[in-house]
Amino acid sequence: MREKLFETPSQTAGPYVHIGTAPQSIGRPGLVGQPGPVIASDTGPAITVEGIVHDGAGAPVRDAMLEIWQADGAGRVGPHGFFARAVADFDSGLFRFQTVRPGAHAQGHAPHIALLIFARGINIHLHTRIYFPEDRELIASDPDFARLSPEARDTLVATPGEGGNYRFDVHLQGPQETVFFDI
């Protein structure tokens, strides 16, 4: 038998998360190789995903830090996967990623982007997924949606805009509450 340890407990990232994770956003120099909100790749169509994280009163979460992890345009993960990080705008709360449309990384599953949300008042980061409206048929047959109501499913599908721009708002609680995962 091998000793088993407990995972270190989470604590909120707090409102000053920018100091350590996105110093440019508070006017400090960035660190070498530190991830930002832009992924440049020719493996798939260029897209943007922007949105606002809303609290239970509908107010924008202006101190949110968000991270994405996704397959490349050909559906490859591991060393081919893409990671990016964005922070909400201090005034509007808007976050914005530039990336490529991911390919499907698992058979029978619709392509998606994994999204983590960190903020003051969020004691352990929230994990959701961004799916794409063009994949309605794949989503309908994806077993990951089997136990979700149509309304819950819709919280995970981005809204299309012009020219590869998508909108993805997150609702932390309430009637439009986004589906969050335990994976």
């Binding site: 909120t12 991830p35 609290d55 239970g56 009163a57 107010a59 979460v61 992890w69 996704q70 397959a71 993960v77 591991g78 996967g81 893409f82 990671f83 990384h105 698992a106 599953h109 994994a114 903020a119 003051r120 008042g121 969020i122 004691n123 929230l126 990951d144 136990r147 979700l148 819950a152 932390l172 609680q173 309430g174 509450e177 986004t178 589906v179 969050f180 995962f181 335990d182 994976i183």
Partner: peptide, 26 residues
């Protein structure tokens, strides 16, 4: 911790099987 009151999801988390996406990372 008052900030958690309006920022905590009401619904339980939705459990999913891991895929190669979650099993790998940057």
């Amino acid at each position: 911790y008052k900030s958690s009151v309006l920022r905590a999801p009401f619904r339980p988390l939705h459990s999913l099987e891991q895929t190669s996406l979650e099993r790998s990372g940057p």
